Amino acid sequence: MPRKIQVTLPDRVGDDLEKWAEYEGRALANLCNYLLEAAVKAEKEKNPQWAQPSGEQK
């Protein structure tokens, strides 16, 4: 099930994200979802240990 979260951002970051989303013709929430998924994927590839379930870390 999708999880909803609330995030507080500095005004400048929020403004930049809104401009970026508008430029790409997508909703702000959609852009943020895309960016968060990409960041998590990159971090998992870089450091997969933190993504292991408890007790399975190597």
Rank of each mutant, 00 (worst) to 15 (best):
M1L: 06
M1Y: 14
M1H: 11
P2I: 04
R3G: 08
R3V: 00
R3E: 04
K4H: 09
I5Y: 14
I5Q: 09
V7D: 03
V7I: 08
T8A: 15
T8C: 08
T8R: 12
L9V: 03
L9I: 01
L9N: 10
P10I: 01
P10M: 03
P10A: 04
D11K: 04
D11W: 06
D11R: 00
D11A: 11
D11P: 01
V13F: 05
V13N: 04
V13S: 00
V13L: 09
G14K: 04
D15R: 14
D15S: 10
D15E: 12
D16Q: 06
L17V: 00
L17E: 01
E18I: 07
E18Q: 08
E18N: 02
K19E: 01
K19N: 00
K19A: 01
W20I: 07
W20D: 13
W20A: 08
E22F: 06
E22T: 00
E22Y: 02
E22Q: 13
Y23S: 14
Y23D: 12
Y23E: 14
Y23K: 06
R26W: 13
R26H: 05
R26E: 11
A27M: 05
A27F: 02
A27K: 08
L28D: 00
L28R: 03
A29V: 12
A29Y: 01
N30Q: 13
N30G: 13
N30T: 06
L31H: 03
L31F: 00
C32R: 05
C32F: 03
C32I: 08
C32L: 09
N33H: 12
Y34W: 02
Y34R: 15
Y34S: 13
L35V: 08
L35Y: 03
L35R: 05
L35F: 07
L36N: 09
E37V: 04
E37G: 02
E37W: 10
A38T: 06
A38D: 07
A39N: 04
A39I: 12
V40D: 02
K41I: 09
A42M: 10
A42F: 05
E43R: 06
K44T: 11
K46V: 15
K46P: 12
K46Y: 05
N47S: 08
P48I: 07
P48S: 09
P48T: 07
P48M: 05
P48V: 08
Q49K: 11
Q49H: 15
Q49T: 11
W50P: 05
W50M: 14
A51Y: 04
A51W: 01
Q52E: 15
P53E: 00
P53M: 09
S54L: 14
S54C: 07
G55T: 11
E56S: 10
E56K: 10
Q57H: 06
Q57R: 12
Q57D: 12
Q57M: 10
K58V: 10
K58W: 14
K58S: 06
K58C: 14
